[in-house]
């Protein structure tokens, strides 16, 4: 079955990203397809490659990147939500005249239409938020 996943909260502050990760991983291991994981609201912060969690804790961004690499996942960060929170990829940073960018490998920034499309193309849309 084809799933869309929506992650509405940022890393560490809420469990949403962890739950979404565990759910996505379990679905993939059962042979299901993940059409897209869409990061919205503070969920966009899951894509920061600059997070430095303590050694003895999980690394939320790396975990998503690795799962993405293993299963070729479409990890999409909402551009509107990302920009207002200071999450920029290289192109956007250049375009907005900012001196840094912070989007991790495996994620890409795109519009809200990608969420609607995930709702249309997936057989199930599962929302993780707070």
């Amino acid at each position: 079955m084809k799933f869309g996943i929506l992650v509405n909260e940022g890393p560490y502050q809420h469990q949403s990203s962890d739950s979404a990760y565990q759910f996505t991983k379990a679905a993939l291991e059962k042979g299901h397809e993940i059409f897209r994981v869409f990061f919205y609201h503070d969920g966009v912060n899951n894509a920061s490659r600059l997070m430095v969690p303590p050694q003895d804790d999980r690394n939320i961004v790396n975990r998503w990147t690795e799962l993405g690499k293993k299963y070729n996942l479409d990890l999409v960060v909402c551009i509107a939500a990302a920009q207002r929170r200071g999450m920029l990829d290289e192109n956007e940073a250049k375009r907005q005249g900012k001196d840094a960018n912070n989007i991790a490998e495996g994620f890409h920034i795109s519009g809200l239409g990608q969420l609607i499309e995930a709702g249309i193309k997936s057989e199930r849309l599962v929302v993780f938020g707070d």
Partner: peptide
């Protein structure tokens, strides 16, 4: 349920 069971519920 575990996470696999959660997935089954959504299916």
């Amino acid at each position: 349920v575990d996470y696999a069971g959660f997935v089954d519920l959504t299916v």
